[in-house]
Amino acid sequence: MMVKANIAAETGFLRVAGFAGIGFAAVIVLANVVLVPSGLPPTGAGIAEVVEFFGAHQNALAAASALMPAAWVLALVFGAGLLSAVRRRGHEGWALVGFAGLVLQNGAFAGVAAIRLALPTAEGAVTALWALHDALFTLNGVFLATAMVGFSASGLSAGLIARWQAWLGFVSAALLFCSATLTPLVIDHTGPLGLLGLAGWLMWVVWLVACGAALVVEKRITTTPGGGSGC
């Protein structure tokens, strides 16, 4: 009876974590839907453009920022679910790397969000704050890449996700890592280099939904007294 209760509880958690991953993807897309059409300056934008946007679109900025705490919580629940699912299959090594990446990206983007909220009242510090924003925003690609490599490698070896999902994560991670590595060039030269991070980020969103769906349908595997496993 106790075993059945534990199985039901873990299955329920994995489903919650799966929906959290899908919800996380939805929230970050929604935040961008609020900001980008309003004219959010791209990485490397001039200070005049930055001052104009953050002075005229404080309502949009506030709405997008209000979504971020929920996004960070959903990301952690999703990551904990992935870690739990692969750990019981004996493949937690890379999953720990992936979870560390998620935690670090939460911290990095909290800094990005805080800078955006501070910019409208920064006055003389706008130039320095915007440079810090661009650097932190672009370098965050390292943490997203770490999360996808860790969870894709562990999920694939554990049989939790399909090969195409893992490769989607690896390709996205490569693009985001390249963008982060080229941070000085991305900041100083607006243009094609910025597309590396954008393409990687779009793949990251698809990867989140795919991995979230994998957790929703995941079945609990139990270890039998004879040492085998069963469902």
Rank of each mutant, 00 (worst) to 15 (best):
V50A: 14
A63R: 06
A166W: 08
G90E: 11
V51Y: 04
L168N: 05
N140F: 03
W130I: 05
L182E: 00
W164M: 09
V126H: 02
G79P: 03
V97H: 00
A153T: 15
A63N: 07
G191P: 00
G230D: 09
L30V: 14
G90M: 13
F151C: 06
H189N: 13
A199W: 07
F78M: 04
F78G: 03
L144I: 09
I221L: 12
V216D: 03
K219E: 10
L185I: 09
V27N: 01
V149N: 03
V33S: 13
V142D: 02
S179Q: 00
R163A: 15
M68H: 07
A122I: 08
T146R: 00
A85D: 02
G101T: 02
L160K: 08
A26F: 12
D134I: 01
W164Y: 10
G39Y: 04
P120M: 14
T121S: 12
G55E: 13
I161P: 02
G155R: 07
T127R: 11
V73E: 00
T138G: 05
G44E: 14
L139I: 06
L202M: 14
A66Y: 10
G227K: 10
H57R: 12
R116I: 01
A173F: 06
G155L: 13
A66W: 11
L129H: 03
L119G: 02
L202T: 08
F24R: 00
S229Y: 09
F151W: 10
L74S: 09
W72Y: 05
P225W: 02
S154R: 08
L139N: 05
V142H: 01
T222G: 06
G101R: 02
A60P: 03
P42F: 09
A71E: 01
V33T: 11
G230C: 05
V149D: 03
L14F: 04
G18R: 00
H133A: 01
S157H: 06
F13V: 06
F99Q: 06
P69E: 14
L182Q: 00
L82R: 00
A131H: 09
F24P: 04
A31P: 00
L76M: 10
L195E: 05
A20G: 02
V86I: 14
A48G: 10
L67Q: 03
M1W: 07
F19H: 07
P41E: 10
M1A: 15
S152Q: 11
S152Y: 10
A125I: 01
D188E: 14
M148K: 03
W167S: 04
V36Q: 07
A80C: 06
T183N: 06
A131T: 11
Q105W: 02
H57G: 05
R15N: 03
A110L: 15
L195D: 04
I7N: 05
L208N: 08
A128T: 13
A158W: 04
A153D: 12
